[in-house]
Amino acid sequence: MSPSPNPVAHDHLPFFITSPGSTDWLLLVMAFTLVAAALLAGVFFLHIHSLPERLAHKGQKLQFEIVAVMCLLALFTHAHLLWVAALLLAFIDLPDFLSPMNRIARASEKLAGLPSPEPAQEDASARGEHGHA
């Protein structure tokens, strides 16, 4: 026995009105679309949010770490000014002050007649490692 429409209803019903007991396909399509749109918006937000880190990755390690911390703070505190500052810092090339200072120190040691440090010790100090035992 097929359900009969209400006598007051129009003869032609829109496609999205389903008969009782049948599947509402429009609801399923819209639910899937809503979930997919929310996931894509989240991925897009995180992709844009990591932009300063990806830009600073080409630069110096210290600059990259500062930008990464600023981006994390901006993400968790919703302080958008930190993200803007991280983006600006990522675009700026920081000057290398360490190399000239190391050259001055080596030249001063040479003038003073002190023995120069071993190459392995220089490499460790250039990377920021300390030889604590």
Rank of each mutant, 00 (worst) to 15 (best):
S4L: 13
P5N: 02
N6W: 14
A9K: 09
F15H: 03
F15L: 06
S19M: 02
P20Y: 03
D24V: 02
W25P: 03
V29Q: 08
M30A: 06
M30V: 06
F32K: 14
T33Q: 07
V35T: 10
A36T: 13
L40W: 14
V43A: 11
V43S: 01
H47L: 12
I48M: 12
H49C: 01
S50W: 05
L51T: 13
P52A: 06
H57W: 13
G59S: 08
G59Q: 03
Q60C: 06
Q63G: 01
Q63R: 12
F64V: 00
V69M: 00
C71L: 06
C71Y: 00
C71M: 10
L73C: 01
L75K: 07
L75H: 04
A79S: 04
A79L: 03
L82P: 01
V84H: 01
A85T: 07
L88T: 07
L89H: 04
D93V: 13
L94H: 12
D96C: 01
P100K: 05
P100A: 05
N102W: 06
I104P: 05
I104A: 15
A105C: 05
S108Q: 05
E109P: 00
E109T: 04
L114N: 11
S116G: 14
S116Q: 15
P117Y: 01
E118H: 12
E118P: 05
A120G: 15
A120N: 15
Q121E: 15
Q121H: 12
Q121A: 13
S125H: 15
S125D: 14
A126F: 15
A126E: 12
R127V: 10
H130T: 07
G131Y: 07
G131P: 06
